[in-house]
Design a protein around this nucleic acid. Structure first.
Ligand code: FES
Ligand code: FES
Lengths: 146, 146
DNA sequence: TATATTTCGGATATTTTTGTCTTTTATTCT
DNA sequence: AGAATAAAAGACAAAAATATCCGAAATATA
């Protein structure tokens, strides 16, 4: 569904948002720790997100990543777009060169409905609202397995 | 969503089914041609499908792949399971070690609904019925782009 | 200014997926 | 039996995704 990089990105964004209310910058180490991701790989992803202007960053002591306070809501689709691109929400489920109503693959009509539901989810849900649920303790970003 | 191998597998199965009514065996070359897939890679996939008993094969002249006539319907999920495994229809959308109602990731409730719809599709749809639609000209397995 | 901190950028390494090639084995036909 | 055909099996190659490392640049603090 999503690449690992994209999953890390989404979780990082949600975590960041859940801690960015204050004028707080979050370091790479903390992010990787809290979303249970490999630190150097996460660094690359954060670089991409920064270049795509989805997060801000500052270097140096007390530097780190943060989401501009008072910034407009960031929808999930924007994060997916930045990391994985939009192929998955528009492409054919069986890999035809283009998804088409007039020359559909065998599962087009069933598949495209589900794909559109996913697209809808990504367009509706925002990082901020998911972060609120996280803060409220209604969801988690990592699990402690014994 | 599905790996390329899995997409090739599904298309190969549907094509095979659409031609297997008669006691007809289909060669690798024809399959790869008709589903627009790399021949040697497709060979590997067909080997797997054969080992998993989803198709039969015979060697030698006029040999090839075929689906046992009068065999019970093959559901899409069986093909996906044989090639990609079931991780995607049961795993967490954000990569948590397990998908859980009690310790859900931020998108669990929306995501799992869509994932279950996909699972439902895979469990309902059979290779044979999709092959019928293909034969009826209602779908295609490859496109000719200029 | 000097030092410590932290991201940035580029190079490199590993793993997985995708794809290819060659030899062997089974089967059919002559 | 011998020749031709086609899949099976295993080794190999290329590409992409995932992950790591290190020096450079920026920033805060002393
Ligand atoms: S053509 Fe395959 S999903 Fe639309
Ligand atoms: S916990 Fe993430 S999808 Fe269920």
């Amino acid at each position: 569904m999503f690449s690992k990089a994209c999953k890390y990105a989404i979780k990082a964004m949600i975590y960041l948002s859940s801690r960015s209310d204050e004028n707080l910058k979050i370091g790479l180490r903390e992010i990787a720790e809290e979303i249970d991701s490999p630190e150097p790989f996460t660094a690359k992803i954060m670089q991409t997100l920064t270049k795509q202007q989805l997060v801000n960053s500052t270097k140096g002591p007390h530097g780190g990543f943060f989401i501009e306070a008072g910034a407009p809501e960031i929808k999930l689709i924007e994060v997916v777009k930045a990391i994985d691109g939009l192929q998955f929400v528009s492409g054919c489920g069986l890999g035809l060169k283009r998804c088409s109503e007039t020359h559909p693959c065998p599962i087009h009509f069933e598949y495209s409905q589900i794909r559109d539901a996913m697209l809808n989810l990504l367009e509706q849900q925002s990082i901020q609202s998911l972060a609120n649920e996280l803060q409220a303790g209604n969801s988690v970003l990592k699990q402690h397995l014994d």
